[in-house]
Simulated scan of single mutants.
Amino acid sequence: MKLSLESIKSALGDGLLSFPVTDLDDKGKFNSITFADRLEWFMSHQVSSIFVAGGTGEFFSLSQDEYRSIVKVTSETVKGKVPTISSVGRSIPEAIQFASIAENAGIDALLLMPPYLTECAKEGVFEYAKTIMQSTNLPVIYYNRANGILPAEYIQKLADACPNFIALKDGTGNMEALNTTIKTLGNRLIYIGGVPTAEIISEAYLSIGVNTYSSAVFNFVPDMANHFYKSLRAGDKETVNLIIKEFFIPFVKLRSNSQGYAVSLIKAGAKLIGKSAGDVRAPLPIPNADEVETLKKLINKAATLIK
């Protein structure tokens, strides 16, 4: 079922968003059966929108054939119950190809990742984003992070040039720059929090009008993730402070043990709750036994934080 633009925008702007991990079997191949089960499980836990093949879904390591399978399974499983978004990016030709694959599969919108370069001039990033956005009929969310960061004036230019540019996902955590963009563009765009473990700065996001964010921990503690989000939106500071102190601060500390753990720990958490998606692909590292044990204790703690 094709969703209306307004329903997509509404879901992106108010409700908890999440990025399922990509299921791999014991040989490192995409596992469509367990991935479909994961999507069903996500929908049973009140997720507002589902972003597949994202950063948490190891987009950077997926082949075109794997991507094609992921978006096909997603559309066939979700069936319009919530908006589905898939990533595009890398080079311009690849991004255009992936966008076409997603559109043909019935995906509702795209998340445009930064280009693959070590350094990019703002003018070049703008042309990169504009070219890709203008190549597709799908609504596009721009992921402002890494080597693809655009300041307010370039976001404005991009919005003027591309009517299908509907949302900005912040991956910087730079509240000054983000607030400048929000005050410059107003309600022309929807704004989404997108730093790793976005809950840790969710209060700051909310204070400048960013009502939602992507929750990676939804992959293994969905009930607590929902409880935290609802408490945040309700202004329940006591509960928000408690969960940040008891879960998110220790989790972020564990995440800082190694680069890549923003994804690796999510897959480890999924395995701990009996919903294994296999291991991460290189160059991401696999957490060691002590780290997995620490994560297990955090998962047990999360269950006690839900009233």
Rank of each mutant, 00 (worst) to 15 (best):
Y143Q: 08
N147E: 15
I149W: 10
L150T: 02
A152W: 06
E153I: 12
Y154H: 08
Q156N: 10
A159P: 05
D160I: 13
A161E: 14
C162K: 13
P163Y: 02
N164V: 05
F165I: 00
I166Y: 03
I166M: 01
I166C: 06
I166K: 03
K169N: 06
K169I: 05
K169H: 06
N174V: 02
N174L: 04
M175V: 11
E176H: 13
N179W: 09
N179L: 07
N179D: 11
N179Y: 12
T180K: 14
T180Q: 13
I182P: 01
I182D: 07
I182T: 02
K183Y: 09
T184L: 12
L185Y: 10
L185E: 11
G186H: 06
G186S: 09
G186R: 07
R188D: 08
L189P: 10
Y191T: 09
G193D: 07
G193V: 12
G194Y: 03
P196D: 13
P196A: 07
P196S: 12
T197D: 10
T197I: 12
A198H: 02
A198I: 02
I201K: 00
S202C: 04
S202R: 03
S202N: 07
E203M: 08
A204Y: 05
A204S: 14
L206A: 11
L206H: 10
L206E: 11
I208N: 11
G209C: 08
N211R: 02
N211S: 02
T212L: 00
T212W: 00
T212F: 00
T212D: 01
Y213L: 05
Y213V: 04
Y213R: 03
S214M: 00
S214I: 04
V217L: 10
V217G: 05
F218M: 01
N219Q: 03
F220M: 09
V221I: 15
V221E: 08
P222V: 04
P222K: 05
P222F: 03
P222N: 05
D223E: 15
A225S: 15
N226M: 08
N226C: 09
N226D: 07
H227T: 12
F228R: 02
K230A: 14
S231C: 14
R233L: 01
R233C: 00
R233T: 00
A234Q: 11
A234T: 09
D236A: 12
D236F: 10
T239W: 01
T239I: 07
N241E: 15
I243T: 01
I244T: 13
K245L: 09
E246F: 09
F247C: 11
F248I: 04
F248V: 06
F248E: 04
F248A: 06
F248T: 06
I249Y: 12
P250C: 00
F251C: 05
V252G: 03
V252P: 01
V252F: 08
R255Q: 15
R255K: 15
R255V: 13
S256K: 12
S256E: 15
S256Y: 05
N257C: 11
S258Q: 15
S258Y: 09
Q259A: 14
Y261W: 04
A262N: 09
A262I: 02
